[in-house]
């Protein structure tokens, strides 16, 4: 367990902080606006390495925007402006020398609806690898088996690797997408509502997978399902109106939040 140091972002914001060597992502005074309308307001928080950090908050609070900002998915949207700093392992992701393709390899992303490519299960997982470098087939096969095993899908698909990925169930498709992301060996996995379109059993499989993956990489999870955040995450950040309200150990946030606003949100009270 990391030994977190507590300090306050401002006098009102309870925020857990980490020693630099424990941080995977460092977000500092990050501000983002859509067509001049602020969506994230001077956010400062650290995401610890090899842990699951959940972002929770009401619709429109900026949690998905923050996730996309970490992956620079807003780059092509001209109406988006931002200032502040996001660092991945100490490197500014907006620095001119940062290669965006390489950033997205290092920071994988999984969305709400599974989006397998219209090709075989094998080719789906091989896709990123092929883009990245030429590998001997045996080596590639090994990585694909490893990625599918890590995504807890290998046993279910090993006999039909060359069938269409679209024949898989929703839960299997989502795990396939995770395997595709893992194949290029990212440092961070961003999960935007990864289980909200899935049935309860598939959801539990994804949650189990998230828990197992944290030994390999850092995970950031956006979810509307607070029980899910409570079940799988180590740390929870509560966002509201683009601001960070509270960030702490999940155990503490869900049993004894520091602020009334957090308490009201997680217990379903009127604000």
């Amino acid at each position: 367990m990391l030994a977190p140091l507590t300090s306050a972002q401002s006098s009102q914001t309870p925020v857990i902080t980490f020693a630099p060597e424990q941080c995977c992502l460092s977000i500092n005074q990050f501000h983002l606006a859509y067509a001049g309308k602020p969506a994230l307001r001077d956010l400062t928080l650290d995401v610890p390495r090899h842990r699951v950090t959940a972002f929770i908050g009401p619709s429109g609070c900026g949690k998905s925007t923050l996730l996309r900002a970490i992956n620079r998915l807003h780059d092509l949207n001209e109406s988006v402006s931002h200032r502040g700093y996001i660092a991945l392992e100490g490197q500014d992701i907006h620095a001119p020398q940062m290669n965006v393709t390489e950033l997205r390899r290092r920071v994988g992303m999984v969305f709400q609806t599974p989006n397998p490519f219209p090709m075989s299960i094998y080719e789906n997982v091989a896709f990123g690898l092929r883009l990245q470098r030429r590998l001997p087939k045996r080596k590639r096969d090994d990585i694909i088996e490893w990625a599918l095993t890590s995504a807890a899908l290998w046993d279910e698909v090993k006999d039909r690797l060359h069938r269409s990925a679209w024949q898989l169930s929703g839960g299997q498709q989502q795990r396939l997408v995770i395997a595709r992301t893992l194949a290029v060996q990212p440092d961070v996995l961003l999960l935007d509502e990864p289980a909200s379109a899935l049935d309860p059993i598939s959801t539990l499989k994804i949650e189990e997978l998230i828990r197992n993956l944290k030994s390999q990489l850092t995970l950031v999870l956006v979810t509307h399902n607070m029980q899910q955040a409570a079940r799988v995450s180590d740390y929870t950040a509560f966002l509201q109106n683009g601001e960070l309200v509270e960030f702490g150990l999940t155990d503490q946030v869900f049993t004894n939040p520091r602020l009334q606003r957090t308490e009201n949100y997680i217990t379903g009270r009127m604000t």
Binding site: M226, Q227, A230, F254, T255, N256, P257, T262, E263, I266, T267
Partner: peptide, 9 residues
């Protein structure tokens, strides 16, 4: 209800 925070307490 899966209560949390003060409800759980």
């Amino acid at each position: 209800r899966q209560p949390a925070a003060s409800d759980l307490r």
